[in-house]
């Protein structure tokens, strides 16, 4: 008898969806004390701490840099309700700086962010590999 698994995941799908589902399989669900649970050493690798904004000197500097380079004229996901902001900054600030340079810098920020996400994906692909890595959160705390 062949059983075709029901579709278990919708929405964004892909590997990110897989990570999100596995987190639930491991962290939630019924636990019965009469049963023995397999040792879950190494499971913390499934936790991605990359996206939490932590207060630390490193983070402050990174965000200051991000602001300096923020492309205020463009940005596909720019909040639509802020026309005043863009006007104001363009008038007072971008004076003398070329728009091209600003856009280029904004791309760099996006790249760094994307890279952070890809690191997150990697940890799903090969969970064991990342077990001994210090999480970025920890590193930032140590830097304080």
């Amino acid at each position: 008898m062949t059983v075709v698994p029901a579709q278990q995941s919708g929405g964004s799908g892909g590997t990110s969806g897989l990570y999100d589902v596995l987190e639930l399989v491991l962290d939630r669900g019924l636990v019965i004390d009469a049963f023995v649970r397999v040792s879950l050493v190494g499971i913390e690798i499934l936790k991605i701490d990359i996206r939490v904004v932590v207060a630390s000197v490193d983070t402050y500097l990174r965000f200051a840099e991000a602001c300096n380079r923020l492309d205020l004229e463009a940005g596909p996901k720019k909040s639509p309700g802020l026309p005043d902001l863009v006007g104001e900054i363009t008038e007072s600030g971008a004076r003398g700086k070329s728009k091209g340079a600003l856009s280029g810098a904004a791309e760099t920020i996006s790249d760094a962010f994307r890279q952070a996400r890809e690191e997150g994906k990697e940890s799903q692909e090969s969970p064991r590999r990342t077990t001994k890595r210090t999480t970025p959160r920890k590193r930032q705390e140590e830097a304080e």
């Binding site: 904004v53 923020l70 492309d71 802020l82 902001l85 996006s110 962010f113």
Partner: peptide
């Protein structure tokens, strides 16, 4: 299950605004 994070560039725009 819903997980949310910020789009960094977009949230910086918003915070500045």
């Amino acid at each position: 299950n819903v997980k949310a994070s910020h789009d960094e560039e977009a949230v910086l725009h918003r915070v500045m605004g």
